[in-house]
Computed example of a mutant assay.
Amino acid sequence: MFAVEQSLLAPLPFERFETGRWFTQQVDRYTQITVSTNHHSVPSRLIGRQVQVLLNASDLLVFDGRTEVARHERLIPAHRARHRSGDGRLPGQVRPSRPSWPTNWSRPPTTRS
């Protein structure tokens, strides 16, 4: 099957196709940008300036114009992390049980109005 279709295939483009997401962020006074609730550092000379951010599947690139000024491993926000259970526990992490009321204590009387 591939041999039949191979002659019909065009060569791959010279330039790589970019699959990341571009957006603009402003550098805060702490020399950081915020991407999906995560903070990433950039050079201090960029405080107050707009930078372009390319968010890929595995990394985050920060550009000042056409110059790359920072590169970070992509972080997954805690509220989106798939490795956590619905209540925020990591796999294998057990929620501590509440201590039961000691049997030798008398419960305080409940008052009803």
Rank of each mutant, 00 (worst) to 15 (best):
R16I: 14
N38M: 05
S100R: 06
I47V: 14
I47R: 09
H83M: 05
H39W: 02
A81G: 01
E68D: 00
R21N: 08
G65L: 10
G88F: 14
Q32I: 03
S106L: 11
P43L: 06
R29Y: 08
V62Q: 00
G86P: 00
S106C: 13
V53W: 06
P108H: 07
T37F: 07
T19M: 09
W101H: 15
F23R: 10
S58I: 11
A70R: 04
V53S: 04
T103I: 11
W105M: 02
Q25R: 14
F17P: 07
R98Y: 08
T111F: 12
H72D: 03
E68C: 01
R29F: 03
V94K: 05
Q93W: 00
R29V: 10
T67N: 08
L12S: 03
I76A: 05
L60G: 02
R49S: 06
N38P: 00
F23A: 14
F14R: 14
Q25C: 12
P109G: 09
A57H: 04
T110K: 15
S41N: 03
Q93E: 12
S106V: 10
A57L: 12
Q26P: 05
R16C: 10
L90E: 01
D87A: 11
T37C: 13
V27I: 11
W22R: 15
E73K: 13
L61K: 07
L55A: 14
T31P: 01
V42P: 01
Q25L: 13
D64A: 11
H79E: 08
P91N: 05
F14G: 00
T34P: 01
G65S: 07
D59R: 09
P13T: 12
L12G: 01
S97P: 07
T103S: 14
Q50Y: 10
V94C: 03
R71T: 07
S85K: 10
P96I: 10
R49W: 00
D64W: 04
Q32L: 02
A57R: 01
L90R: 03
H83L: 05
I33D: 05
G65P: 00
S85I: 02
R16F: 14
A78K: 15
A70K: 06
R80N: 04
P108G: 08
T103K: 14
I76G: 02
T24Y: 06
T110Y: 07
T34Q: 09
R84N: 03
S36T: 13
H39L: 09
T31A: 15
R29K: 09
S85Y: 11
F23Y: 14
S36Y: 15
P99A: 13
E18T: 06
T34W: 04
T37A: 10
T34V: 07
A57D: 12
L46Q: 06
R95F: 04
H72W: 04
T19S: 08
L75H: 02
Q93F: 00
V42Y: 04
W105N: 09
D59W: 06
T103P: 12
R89M: 03
S41I: 07
R84I: 08
G88V: 11
W105R: 15
H40F: 08
Q50D: 06
T111L: 07
N38E: 11
G65D: 01
R80P: 02
